[in-house]
Design a protein around this nucleic acid. Structure first.
Lengths: 337, 337
DNA sequence: TTGAAAATTGAAAACGTTTTCAATTTTCAA
DNA sequence: TTGAAAATTGAAAACGTTTTCAATTTTCAA
């Protein structure tokens, strides 16, 4: 590595001021004479100075690094959220340090110590799997964090989510309005709060519309395409199969579409299908998938915003945000014949 | 944040040695009496000490951070590579700092300065878009980096890729072996070396088997599903349409499948389809997609390995690795009727 | 047993910042 | 014009490490 690094001292020399003044210009900038400030800024530009983050952070300033904890990479769901997080942080000149859940199977204590003693100013947790242990520790240390897509994980901490129950309700109500009465439901991973809420919404809608719930019509899925496929096959094998299927996410809905096609069923003429999430691919398949839109990117945005706010003002009370879901009508659903 | 941080000094006090000795134990560990080492290690454990990375890195040691530059998140392609990178780095106790290409539209000079002056020990570039400018600068600064999926971007630097040309050749040869003669080809983004190589392979295979190339059969795509769909529609609209279509990645192949279905064509009976990449979803669609497997995760692994090697031994010559692609026969292709 | 060489150890400087405190300069009411 | 108050500035300490250099201790051949 090159050792020609320009430091605050070089800038000070170039500008003919003390390096403390340079630091002041770099930071709050309070109480520096305009003329000196200008000289410093010119020197910074001329020398191509950039702040050494480790030194700043060591001295107690911000590291301008946010830890982003995700369970998996390469899914559209996570991708959308990350996109939102990333752009919000970039705007505020923060960088992202990536952690994947499966990495640190180590004792969680050590893990959190590493996270908080590491160089990050705060932590963003996307749909964490077993955060009970370390969330408590984070709270105790007053380490800034925000949980994304949280339901039921953390009563007290700040969190951003979506109205999963309302989404489940809306999707079901829509199918009911189209005349469907036998509506299959494929759940997500039932250890996640959002899965339970979506199921709740489905049941509530049936109840409110006087349709008896049939346990046979509810199958457990896992948010993966093969899971959706398998559940759909089971549903279609029923003696009295559903005329519509509501999958708890889009990816499983794609599996349902595969299954339907394989059975020679036309979508939406023979069977209506509805998903959840509205990942980009939902609009790209044929027929385009009717789904419940979850503003994933927006969730990432808002969570990052919230975290930066907490870092600035640690004394503020924890906030919980639920962004509204929205029914997106496309062509995989139609009036029951 | 808690200010109860355990430092090397606390450990030294606890163990009854100087903090220099603690540092020695922590690092190379040369020349420390076994008995003292044991005392230090015990004290570390007892106090729950973890190294302050910014201090270490400031002093000139390693930051144990690798910058990972990707153009986009949330695609299976990137996800697989990142998985490989991540697990290799985790094994070596490195962390990942994430950069997305679209973030820093700023002048590239500034950008690279930030990257190299930032806290990373090295840089991993996944399929970078316009790296010409900064790669040169990285080389000059002797900043360790490895390019992943590189073709034609950087003659001199270390890189990991796959045998794209051979993959294109193999896929085409396979379709020829099945009796197909009218073989449609949908390219990737033509600004990428891998796209050009796959096309090359396709053409070479046709030539070697005495099949005249028909320019009509080659359509430009963009690695996205709608692009694949559109190109497939064009191909099927030809007077003498292809009996098989080779898409330059799986995602576009899914678009081709959509198009085929929409035209009422059975896969593979009426049309054979083959992809490239072998992302997990390729095995999950129906029928399962025949494709050219690119060892994406392995590529990430190897690139990370290589980078760590370069960081350790900067004097070594740049290496270029091309991992072999492989034909994965599934059910979207069959003998021409 | 002795003393040179090797191994071990500790003190102190340094990495590049931010921030405290005191000193200096400027402002402005009387 | 004067001098108290406010604004500006610089010196120096500190953050937690690694590493150099010198001092001390240990080893082992003679």
């Amino acid at each position: 590595m090159s050792r020609t690094n320009v430091t605050i001292v070089d800038v000070a020399k170039e500008a003919g001021v003390s390096f403390a003044t340079v630091s002041r210009v770099l930071n709050d900038g309070a109480n520096v004479k305009p003329e000196k400030r200008a000289r410093v800024l010119r020197a910074i530009k001329r020398l191509g100075y950039t702040t050494n983050l480790q030194a700043r952070s060591l001295r107690g300033g911000r590291s301008h690094l946010i830890g982003l904890l995700v369970r998996d990479l390469g899914t559209a769901y996570i991708g959308e959220i990350m996109r939102g997080v990333d752009s919000e942080l970039a705007e505020n000149k923060y960088d992202v340090m990536l952690y994947t859940t499966h990495r640190h199977q180590a004792k969680e204590n050590e893990y959190v110590t590493a996270l908080t003693r590491g160089m990050t100013d705060g932590l963003l947790l996307v749909l964490p799997r077993h955060p009970e242990g370390y969330l408590k520790s984070l709270r105790q240390k007053k380490f800034p964090y925000v949980v994304i897509d949280h339901q039921g994980i953390d009563d007290r901490g700040p969190a951003v989510g979506a109205t999963n129950r309302a989404g489940g309700y809306d999707a079901t109500r829509y199918l009911l309005a189209l005349g469907h009465r036998r509506i299959g439901f494929i759940t997500g991973s039932m250890d996640l709060g959002c899965s339970r809420e979506r199921l709740d919404g489905y049941r509530a809608a049936l109840r409110d519309h006087g349709v008896a719930a049939d346990a046979e019509l509810v199958r457990e899925g896992n948010f993966q395409q093969p899971g959706g496929y398998a559940a759909a096959i089971e549903l279609m094998n029923l003696q009295d199969p559903p005329t519509a299927i509501f999958a708890s996410n889009d990816v499983m809905a794609f599996g349902v579409m595969e299954a339907a096609r394989e059975r020679g069923k036309k979508i939406p003429d023979d069977i209506s299908i509805i998903g959840f999430d509205d990942i980009p691919q939902a609009a790209q398949v044929h027929p385009p998938l009717t789904t419940i839109r979850q503003p994933l990117e927006e969730m990432g945005h808002r969570a990052a915003q919230m975290l930066l706010e907490i870092i600035e003002h640690p004394e503020q009370a924890a906030e919980k945000i639920e962004l509204p879901t929205e029914l997106v009508m496309r062509e995989s659903t139609r009036v029951l014949r």
